[in-house]
């Protein structure tokens, strides 16, 4: 096989992605505004309440929103938690809008939020789960070489919700959500070729678009 054909084949293998379906929802409760010097913060709900939002998803969301807009500031989650320690840790952060008045009743917190112009807190819930998997893949190696044979596949669902809380009004101003399903597979004839549906990455992209549009709209 010519070298260029091998390169194309390798490129196809590397870039092969499984198919996925994305569903986006948005709900606005009340009117709101944000200006250039004001900030938002993303915070995931705690694993203490059974929520399992992945750290890498939160990192992805923070970075993607930062790249996609310049109309407001975004304070990285970890930096915010360090500055406001111990009030927004997994076990101590407000889990619902009803918990906000108690935490905002603390003058030190309220003053610091005001100084840093943090106007909205966005609570993220959800996770990526594998729903079903099937197939078989076996690999063997011997003195003459090795290889794999078989076919395995699995379905992933990445479902995330972002609830936007106005810290000055102590209300929820809206919700956006992204639900991505996809099927990944690994066919193997000597060499296993993973064809992955990047559901979490797509959900990050979809949800960050929605959050940016929410504040731009």
């Amino acid at each position: 096989m010519k070298r260029s054909k091998i390169n194309i084949l390798l490129l196809l293998i590397i870039t092969a992605v499984g198919c996925s379906t994305t569903r986006i929802d948005e709900e606005v409760n009340t009117a709101f505004t944000i200006s250039g010097d004001e900030s938002i913060v993303l915070l995931s709900n705690s694993y203490h309440t059974g929520n399992q939002t992945e750290l890498d998803f939160m990192d992805c969301l923070n970075n993607t929103i930062l790249k996609k807009q310049d109309t407001f500031e975004i304070i990285p989650t970890r930096q915010f938690q360090n500055l406001f320690y111990p009030w927004f840790e997994p076990s101590t952060a407000p889990q619902s809008i009803e918990d906000l008045p108690k935490i905002l009743g603390n003058e030190l917190i309220k003053e610091k939020l005001s100084v840093m112009k943090i106007k909205y807190l966005i609570k993220i819930t959800g996770e990526t789960k594998t729903n079903a998997s099937s197939g078989a893949l076996s690999c063997a190696a011997g003195p003459g070489g090795g290889g794999c044979f078989g076919f395995a596949w699995w379905d992933d669902t990445s479902a995330y919700n972002a609830s936007v809380w106005d810290l000055s009004q102590e209300t929820s101003v809206g919700n956006v959500s992204a639900n991505v399903t996809g099927t990944s597979m690994i066919p193997a004839i000597i060499i296993p070729i993973p064809i992955l549906a990047r559901t979490q990455s797509n959900a990050c992209d979809g949800l960050s678009d929605q959050i940016v549009n929410f504040f731009s709209g």
Binding site: L137, A152, S184
Partner: peptide, 9 residues
């Protein structure tokens, strides 16, 4: 990740 792959790892 597929459970077969997980088991292998």
């Amino acid at each position: 990740m597929n459970s077969a792959v997980k088991k292998l790892i």
